[in-house]
Design a protein around this nucleic acid. Structure first.
Lengths: 336, 336
DNA sequence: CTGAAAGCGCTTACAG
DNA sequence: CTGAAAGCGCTTACAG
């Protein structure tokens, strides 16, 4: 574990000055081809590795992006994080990822830590915080940051916000269920008063209202367990419900299990629609109709917007809604 | 976006030298309480943030760990990554995470990038590579690295290996099925000749052999889709099979869907056991018997071992097997 | 096209 | 207990 070679070592071996080595590193057009070759040979010989910390000190972009995720274990966010990370990697950026587990304290700590590490910018899917202090430290550090999927700071002129067009998804799903002739449609899942819940519910409520129908919503943790419980409860207490639009596929998959347990045939006795279209939706039985949110593409686009901001200084638009799409399968439409 | 304050600015405001500021930063016991207080006040006033890159240059541990994951989208690895990351965060370490998507090229690139960023060590769940070059660059950089969950480099004296005791899991599951009276037990899933597959199959094969029973194995991608296909095929072509031990819960959940589709009652007509005990196992219908691999604990322990290595120089033992446990539910035992 | 020199923000002996 | 000085590995004008 001897000292790692530096540009000075490379320079000595290549018989040039360290400035020249640095120029090679910078891909400067100034340096002659033979010189470059000699330097590169020396690097290979010595096993030289670039020291970004040193470069950073001189004010160069370190090539590090901070990715702060409220719940990395949720497949939806995992997909987002993985897609964004890989898009960054393709452009030569490494990604510091942290799971805040929905705790504001964790979020504050990891953001502070990432600033210390000199990240060039942030993509943050934030935890809901009471105070508006959440992202203030980022602004003070003068770092570009985008809020994705959840907006906790209303200053979108400072922290541009990008998400999927959930409201449109809610509309599409509800219109679909109406078109099948169902009238008594419930909305299940999603924590009350969360922006995401409000958006997903809004499209549903709007379409129901336009059709002159009453809404019926039960909110709660968007988990499989909640879905299962609600399926059993709806079956027992509200057998009149003909269709359910779920806050998320996790809830819908839980309801699928709960209905199976209760002997209710999904797609026939009751129509079920999920939200997100995670991989499993197509593999469940019956297959789950769902609002597809192409989160992989969303992740790549968010990464691209961030890099454009860092690289060319073009700040992303304040609010960006990525389109969604309804994927119809057997859980809502019977034997399709 | 003016220049960020440095220790020199803090020193000026606090009326001390920059050495003293640095001593405060290092929590040196040398500095007087009042001086420390004055320095901390100045830091707060200026919004000072520590610059780790600069500290790193002086040879201090940057507090960055590299986490290289072959498939971050797989919930099993997500859980591992999230647990490890959070354990590192608790000890003040940030984590650079990269998904290599099972490609050796990606793996080589992200490892190189992390070395440039000055990580203090690696936790690597590697991609299978043909050449043995995979981790060589890490060794040359003199960095500590553990292989987790998959061993691609046999030099465990250099790259200690830690995984879960899959063979014991296979034994437990097979003994359980035998104890229920089933004799024709198949093993489904897992890519052929992968170490993980071999380990998970080994326990099954050993117990079957001891019981004087023949083995029957079908290998393939450990995905839901594969599981569903195999359920349909087994039902059609091998109705004599009484029980199935799956390579993973994903395969088992796929089989659950496939059997449902085929009208086969799992837990009665056929007994099914999964592997990993992901959250969904307990929420499927029927609930899935599974070999529980406490990957969250495994992630925390791997992180702890890494930090001990970095901090105190104690290299982890060469091969470490974390215990597993069989969780019996309805898919194998009927109405339990 | 190449080299000598200054400086990025910190830490670390060392002297006081 | 505190400060002056050197140096970590790089980049960046600038002079040649």
């Amino acid at each position: 574990m001897s000292r790692r070679p530096t540009i000075v070592d490379v320079a000595r071996v290549a018989g040039v000055s360290k400035s020249t080595v640095s120029n090679v590193l910078q891909n400067s057009p100034l340096v002659r081809a033979e010189t470059r070759a000699a330097v590169e040979r020396a690097m290979g010989e010595l096993g030289y590795v670039y020291n970004r910390a040193a470069a950073n000190l001189r004010g160069v972009d370190v090539g590090l992006i901070g990715l702060v995720i409220n719940d990395l274990r949720n497949p939806f966010f995992t997909e987002f994080a993985a897609s964004a990370q890989m898009a960054f990697a393709e452009r030569g950026y490494a990604t510091v990822i942290a799971n805040t587990d929905e705790t504001p304290e964790m979020q504050a700590r990891v953001i502070a830590s990432m600033i210390e590490h000199g990240v060039s910018g942030f993509l943050i899917s934030p935890t809901y915080v009471d105070d508006e202090e959440g992202l203030e430290v980022v602004r003070r550090a003068g770092l570009p940051a985008m809020q994705v999927l959840r907006r906790i700071d209303h200053r979108t002129e400072v922290f541009p916000f990008a998400t999927l067009d959930y409201e449109a998804g809610g509309r599409l799903a509800t219109e679909h269920l109406l078109s099948l002739g169902t009238r008594r449609i419930a909305f299940v899942g999603g924590l009350e008063n969360r922006p995401v819940t409000l958006e997903r519910t809004a499209g549903y409520a709007a379409v129901m209202g336009e059709a002159g129908l009453p809404t019926f919503a039960v909110h709660g943790r968007p988990s499989r367990a909640f879905g299962r419980d609600m399926a059993l409860r709806l079956h027992a207490e509200h057998p009149e419900i003909e269709a359910v639009l779920c806050f998320s596929d996790l809830v819908a998959l839980g309801m699928l299990a709960g209905f199976a347990e209760a002997g209710v045939r999904v797609g026939r006795d009751v129509r079920l629609v999920g939200f997100d279209d995670i991989e499993e939706a197509a593999l469940a039985w019956p297959q789950l109709t769902s609002v597809r949110c192409d989160v992989a593409r969303f992740g790549r686009e968010a990464a691209a917007a961030m890099l454009e901001w860092i690289g060319d200084g073009v700040q992303p638009q304040e609010n960006r809604l990525a389109p969604v799409e309804l994927i119809v399968r057997a859980s809502s439409a019977g034997d399709v």
